[in-house]
Write a protein that binds this DNA or RNA. Structure first.
Length: 847
DNA sequence: AGCACGCCGACT
DNA sequence: GTCGGCGTGCTC
């Protein structure tokens, strides 16, 4: 840094060693660049890369943002504003994270702000709501400073406030009209009339547990005896005291009383009077105190080193993985469903922890609600953090901080757990790596957590283990090419064999009139048999609601969504027609609005109808449905799963949700109600998805020594895919599929970037898509660009949609250049004012 | 993403 | 005559 620049940019008297610092910050906005702010000299030593600061952005907005870089280069074209506040003394975002976030923004064609927005729990974001409050020592009449009219206005407003006693910056802005009110605030702060409370900062609030303990003076034996005598006439209070002493061994353990007892334990005990508890507190016999507790109350002492006995094949697989890790950073564990991958993971996690590294274990959403968490908690106790999408923000912050502080060495979490502030990863595990739920579609960043995990491993020098019974074709290809190690587990754990899979020809059964609604006689009979044997059944139907379509039998009228190009689905439970794309709903129609006919019938079927039919046909069965509609509430999954586990329910009907990671020992039959709808999908991944779905759902059948059965209903049993599913032959499936991919130029041979153009007006949508295609062709060549084309559902939430597919060579240099070209092409379209309102959305590696 | 600045319709 | 519609341009 040259001093000369300092003289120019610094108004204050420079000293010889005076350094003016600037920071580049990431604003939580979709802006392409970083912004540079100036550090107030006195606060130079508070600058932390990865820490949060508050800055003024534009005229009104006060934002908190992340410091991405610190330097001494004064911007030449503009005067940098000062940082207003420092929030953190230590980074909330680590350096490895910043590196990863930069990579994500570049790779997935979005802004750093979008990545930061997705990454930070909102309690860490503290948007624009800094607040000001009257300074307690401030006396308006006696203060020495003259006030401007604006300042008076603010003081008036603050004085008029009763309970809240504070104003947000936005409120101050409104109060004064416009302009930079920050000057006024600064002046008032200088005059010590107000202060700014930065605990604005943390919306995070710790969980406080109300506890009670015996007051210290009663702790001696003689005093306690006296206390008992005093209370003889107060039986209710005596009861409480007895209960307390029963639970807290005050003599055996000198710290026991100090730790106290949860107040709720006494007040909610059925035999005790809550008011007696309060009386004891009021009279100073019991003492109430607050204890800040973790939202993750877990065993303080994990059961030290539970020894899992790995089976012979598990041990072999584990050793093989370790050997591969000697030379390769990534290993694919291809293990059939029920082969006991989890035990291997646990073993490897232990080793990684012993080596001093952190571990991230990614799972799809649904698998996380199951037994795995309890199992890991038993092994890793309070070192294990859990990151779930249904967690509250406070819970997220707690995990975030736990990772920062080192409290959590292992985190088990869903997709978004890749954002956590690790800085010393030793191992990453991506279980069910083929899962499409690792890919985020909306909003940006449209990332795939599997790919991000691979990159994290690369950046932090950690090993990555991918696990699946049905690996993604791309992943298996990498393994085959020798880029990943490949370890195969082809036997189920314990005695369980692979289930028998049978096909049921529904067309034939329909002709023979042996179908009952959507159940073949075979399936229905098998369900009855299993229930009779006190075994459980899972039925899979890939569609929620009662019926996907309703239609007038007389004129053919079909109710459609107003906002989307889809027909409305009938939901019987709520007696509504609902759009599955925008949430629009209306009451079910009983009379056709087009012709007045009353013959409005449902067409097709979803989970709700299957549940309904089954309840009618098999009244003895206890049926539960698990789909998006029944699992919206926070603990709904848990409830459904635990009911099924305890065999309160014996048939589980569901969508994709039932295919994933659930592990019930007593399930001996899995039925796929309609396989056809899964196979026929206009997408190059349709076969892969269908194969995975069939195998995964089949995997739910038969565990712990029982052989399971899978019945697949289809109108065309001759399709090639069934053969591979029945024979459980992944390799054959893979060989066939990889050939197709090569022939048609799909991943893993080519990389795909899908561009989506959205516009409220159909014509403009099409024109914008054509324009974008043109720009792309100009830059990437005709061969690389396919489309534009309207997707099957060409309008969602009132936006028309056009899609363009870009196919690229896999080489990194090609990709980097192509992304630059794509950005340019998008800018070129956006520069045309008729397309101002078009939304251009790039999706890298779509699924 | 907001939010201010800037040019054309229905109201006191 | 004005109030206000939302089109577009900028934010260190």
């Amino acid at each position: 840094m040259t001093l000369a620049l300092d003289f120019i940019s610094d108004q204050q008297t420079p000293t010889a060693d005076r350094v003016t610092l600037f920071v580049d910050v990431i604003l939580p906005l979709p802006l392409p660049r970083l912004y540079t702010y100036r550090v107030p000299f006195e606060l130079n030593d508070r600058v932390v890369i990865g820490g949060r600061v508050i800055v003024q952005f534009g005229a009104k907005k006060t934002l908190s943002c992340i410091v991405a870089a610190v330097h001494e280069q004064a911007p030449k074209e503009y005067q940098a504003k000062y940082i207003l506040e420092f929030i953190d003394d230590a980074p909330v975002v680590t350096q490895p994270q910043l590196k990863l976030f930069r990579w994500m923004a570049e790779y997935y064609l979005c802004t750093l702000g979008e990545v930061i927005n997705a990454a930070l729990p909102s309690a860490l974001k503290l948007s624009s709501e800094s607040r000001i409050q009257l300074h307690p020592a401030f006396e308006r009449d006696t203060n020495e400073y003259p006030m401007t009219s604006q300042e008076d206005k603010i003081l008036d407003a603050l004085g008029a406030l009763e309970d809240a006693k504070s104003l947000t910056f936005t409120e101050v802005g409104d109060l004064l009209g416009v302009a930079s009110f920050h000057k006024v605030i600064k002046s008032l702060m200088h005059k010590e009339a107000i202060f700014l409370f930065e605990h604005t900062a943390d919306k995070y609030s710790p969980k406080v547990l109300k506890k009670v303990r015996l007051h210290g003076r009663h702790l001696t034996e003689s005093n306690l005896e006296r206390l008992f005598e005093d209370l003889t006439s107060k039986p209710k209070q005596l009861d409480v005291l007895m209960k307390y002493l029963q639970r807290v061994p005050v003599y055996q353990d000198e710290h026991a009383n100090h730790r106290g007892l949860e107040k709720a334990y006494l007040t909610s005990s059925p035999h005790l009077s809550p008011s007696a508890v309060n009386t004891l507190i009021k009279n100073g016999i019991l003492e109430q105190f607050d204890q800040i507790v973790s939202r993750f109350p877990m065993d303080e002492n994990p059961i030290a080193h539970i020894q899992f006995e790995l089976s012979e094949s598990q041990t072999a697989a584990r050793d093989e993985i370790m050997t591969y890790f000697g030379e390769k950073d990534i290993v694919l564990l291809h293990g059939v469903t029920g082969s006991g991958k989890t035990e291997i993971y646990i073993d490897l996690i232990r080793q990684a922890l012993d080596g001093g590294g952190q571990v991230l274990y990614l799972l799809p959403e649904i698998a996380l609600t199951t037994q795995i968490v309890t199992r890991l908690l038993r092994v890793f106790g309070s070192r294990l953090g859990i990151y779930h999408s249904k967690f509250s923000d406070n819970e997220r912050v707690e995990v975030w901080n736990g990772v920062l502080s080192g409290r959590f060495q292992v985190v088990i979490g869903v997709r978004s757990a890749v954002f956590l502030p690790f800085d010393n990863l030793g191992l990453l595990i991506v279980d069910e790596e083929h899962e499409s739920s690792y890919k985020q579609y909306e909003p940006a960043p449209r990332y795939n957590a599997r790919e991000v995990a691979l990159m994290m491993g690369n950046f932090q020098g950690a090993k990555v283990l991918l696990g699946s019974a049905t690996p993604a074709v791309e992943t298996y290809y990498q393994a085959k090419q020798g880029r990943y190690g490949l370890v195969t587990l082809s036997k189920r754990f314990g005695e369980a064999g692979m289930p028998d899979i049978e096909l049921i020809d529904t067309r034939k059964q329909r002709e023979q009139k042996t179908m009952h609604n959507h159940f073949s006689a075979d399936l229905l009979g098998e369900i009855e048999r299993k229930l009779g044997a006190k075994e459980q059944v899972i039925l899979f139907q890939n569609r929620r609601g009662y019926a996907p379509v309703v239609a007038c039998q007389d004129c053919g009228w079909i109710p459609k969504c107003n906002n989307c190009a889809v027909s409305l689905s009938y939901h019987k439970h709520s007696h509504e027609l609902r759009c599955h794309y925008c949430g629009y709903h209306e009451s079910m129609v009983t009379k056709c609005p087009a012709c007045g006919s009353r013959a409005v019938k449902t067409v097709g079927f979803g989970t709700e109808k299957i549940e309904d039919d089954l309840k009618i046909m098999l009244p003895q069965a206890s049926v539960q449905r698990m789909d998006l509609d029944t699992t919206r509430a926070k603990n709904a999954y848990q409830q459904i799963i635990s009911d099924f586990e305890k065999q309160v329910t014996n048939v589980l009907v569901g969508t994709q949700m039932v295919t994933k990671g659930l592990d019930f020992a007593n399930v001996s039959l899995v039925g796929i109600i309609n396989a056809d709808s899964i196979i026929h999908y206009p997408d190059f991944r349709a076969h892969e998805r269908a194969y995975q779905m069939f195998v995964q759902v089949s995997g739910r059948a038969g565990r712990k020594g029982k052989k399971g059965k899978v019945l697949i209903q289809t109108s065309d049993p001759t399709q090639v895919i069934f053969d591979k599913v029945i024979r459980n032959d992944y390799l054959e499936f893979y060989n066939y599929e990889i050939m197709q991919r090569q022939e048609h130029g799909y991943p893993p041979f080519m990389r795909i970037i899908k561009m989506t153009v959205k516009h409220m007006e159909q014509g403009l949508c099409e024109q914008a898509a054509i324009a974008l295609t043109g720009e792309l062709v100009d830059r990437l060549g005709r061969a690389a660009v396919l489309g534009p084309e309207a997707p099957y559902i060409f309008r969602i939430r009132n936006f028309y949609i056009q899609e363009i597919t870009i196919k690229l060579d896999r080489a990194h240099t090609v990709l980097k250049h192509a992304k630059l070209m794509i950005t340019e092409a998008m800018d070129a379209v956006k520069d045309q004012k008729e397309f101002r309102q078009a939304r251009l959305v790039p999706d890298v590696d779509p699924m």
